[in-house]
Amino acid sequence: MSETGKKKSVVDRVVDGIVSGIISGEFQPGSKLPTEVELCRQYEAGRNSVREAIKKLEANGVVYIKRADGTFVSETYNQKLLDPMLYQVILKKNSWKDFVQLRAVIEIGTLNVILENDPDEEKIRNLYEIQEKMEAALNEKEPDPNRIMETDTEFHAGIAALSDNPQIVTITEYITRLTVPSRLEAICKVIKKGEVSHFAELHREILEVISKREKDKIVQTVTDHYVYWNGEKL
Results as ranks from 00 to 15, higher is better:
residue 170 T to D: 05
residue 167 Q to D: 10
residue 165 N to H: 14
residue 148 I to P: 07
residue 191 I to R: 07
residue 184 L to W: 05
residue 149 M to E: 12
residue 185 E to L: 11
residue 204 R to Q: 13
residue 159 I to D: 05
residue 185 E to H: 12
residue 160 A to L: 07
residue 212 K to A: 07
residue 167 Q to Y: 10
residue 169 V to G: 13
residue 151 T to H: 15
residue 199 F to Q: 00
residue 149 M to Q: 14
residue 198 H to F: 01
residue 198 H to G: 00
residue 212 K to I: 00
residue 194 G to R: 08
residue 207 L to E: 04
residue 210 I to M: 08
residue 155 F to K: 12
residue 213 R to T: 03
residue 160 A to F: 09
residue 153 T to W: 04
residue 171 I to N: 06
residue 192 K to N: 08
residue 145 P to H: 01
residue 192 K to I: 01
residue 213 R to W: 09
residue 167 Q to L: 15
residue 208 E to W: 09
residue 163 S to V: 03
residue 158 G to S: 10
residue 195 E to W: 05
residue 211 S to T: 02
residue 180 V to G: 00
residue 145 P to S: 05
residue 156 H to L: 02
residue 183 R to H: 12
residue 151 T to N: 10
residue 196 V to N: 11
residue 153 T to M: 09
residue 194 G to I: 02
residue 179 T to A: 13
residue 175 I to G: 11
residue 173 E to S: 14
residue 196 V to I: 11
residue 202 L to K: 11
residue 214 E to K: 12
residue 205 E to C: 02
residue 210 I to L: 08
residue 164 D to C: 14
residue 170 T to N: 08
residue 164 D to Y: 14
residue 155 F to S: 12
residue 155 F to I: 06
residue 167 Q to W: 11
residue 211 S to P: 00
residue 177 R to N: 09
residue 180 V to Q: 05
residue 207 L to T: 07
residue 214 E to S: 06
residue 175 I to F: 15
residue 205 E to D: 13
residue 198 H to L: 11
residue 195 E to M: 12
residue 146 N to Q: 05
residue 153 T to K: 11
residue 145 P to Q: 01
residue 187 I to W: 06
residue 197 S to P: 01
residue 147 R to G: 03
residue 162 L to G: 09
residue 171 I to H: 02
residue 194 G to P: 08
residue 189 K to H: 07
residue 173 E to D: 13
residue 172 T to M: 13
residue 199 F to G: 03
residue 168 I to V: 10
residue 186 A to E: 01
residue 195 E to Y: 07
residue 181 P to G: 07
residue 184 L to H: 08
residue 186 A to N: 02
residue 159 I to F: 06
residue 146 N to G: 10
residue 212 K to W: 01
residue 165 N to G: 04
residue 184 L to Y: 01
residue 185 E to V: 02
residue 145 P to V: 00
residue 186 A to P: 04
residue 172 T to R: 03
residue 213 R to E: 08
residue 204 R to L: 03
residue 208 E to G: 06
residue 157 A to P: 00
residue 188 C to R: 15
residue 171 I to S: 09
residue 214 E to A: 05
residue 153 T to D: 13
residue 202 L to A: 01
residue 188 C to D: 02
residue 164 D to W: 11
residue 156 H to F: 13
residue 193 K to F: 10
residue 193 K to N: 13
residue 158 G to V: 05
residue 155 F to M: 11
residue 163 S to D: 08
residue 205 E to Y: 02
residue 194 G to Y: 04
residue 175 I to Y: 12
residue 186 A to W: 09
residue 179 T to S: 15
residue 214 E to W: 03
residue 168 I to Y: 13
residue 152 D to W: 03
residue 201 E to K: 13
residue 214 E to L: 09
residue 188 C to T: 10
residue 205 E to L: 05
residue 147 R to L: 14
residue 155 F to C: 06
residue 163 S to F: 08
